[in-house]
């Protein structure tokens, strides 16, 4: 077993210090070490987006991110996203639009949607949304209501 590396970062605004093996993914660190289980494992290969988090304001797949590389950075998970007014609007839009079925992919979509709205604001149109969520797979909804939810949340962002 390899030596653990001590890293410091903030997650959802709170400073954390943890020791992790260098091979560990940020996804496993969040779920198993820190206990934030809103971020989901869907594939472990960056193909499904269920593990999407924000790192320094950019959305990334936490399954492809080495935990050690979180050192000194600012992480936001779905739990943190929905705690802010903008993220809460995204969550509420998903609920109201019927964009949630089994819900397993939903946290990843909510984080990515919050990032898209943060980047594009109310100019976010359905075509840009579809491209923006192409890295998030959903097996239940057929995406239509997800696009509608993000469109609605972007409108409210003005």
């Amino acid at each position: 077993m390899s030596t653990n590396i001590e890293i410091r970062f903030t997650v959802n605004g709170s400073p954390r210090t943890v020791a992790v093996p260098p091979e560990m993914s940020a996804l496993n660190m969040l779920r198993e070490v820190i206990g934030l289980t809103g971020t989901k494992y869907g594939c472990g290969e960056g193909e499904c987006g269920a593990c999407t988090i924000l790192v320094d304001g950019m959305s990334v797949n936490s399954c492809l991110l080495f935990a050690v590389d979180c050192d000194g950075r600012k992480l936001t998970t779905v739990e943190g996203v929905v705690n802010e007014p903008a993220g809460a609007r995204v969550r509420d839009a998903f609920v109201q639009a019927g964009a949630v079925q089994c819900g397993f992919c939903t946290p990843g979509f909510v984080v990515q949607a919050a990032h898209l709205i943060d980047t594009h604001g109310s100019k976010l149109d359905p075509e840009t949304i579809k491209r923006g969520i192409e890295g998030n797979l959903c097996r239940c909804t057929g995406y239509k209501k997800i696009v509608e939810a993000i469109t609605a949340a972007a409108q409210e962002a003005r």
Binding site: G46, L64, F66, V68
Partner: peptide
Amino acid sequence: ILAGGTDVMPQSESGKTPLRKTLVNIR
């Protein structure tokens, strides 16, 4: 050598390209 990790992570996880003794994060 580790930068974005988007190739190194899945390739090491699957055993296709195991991580070596030293991991250098150049980011």
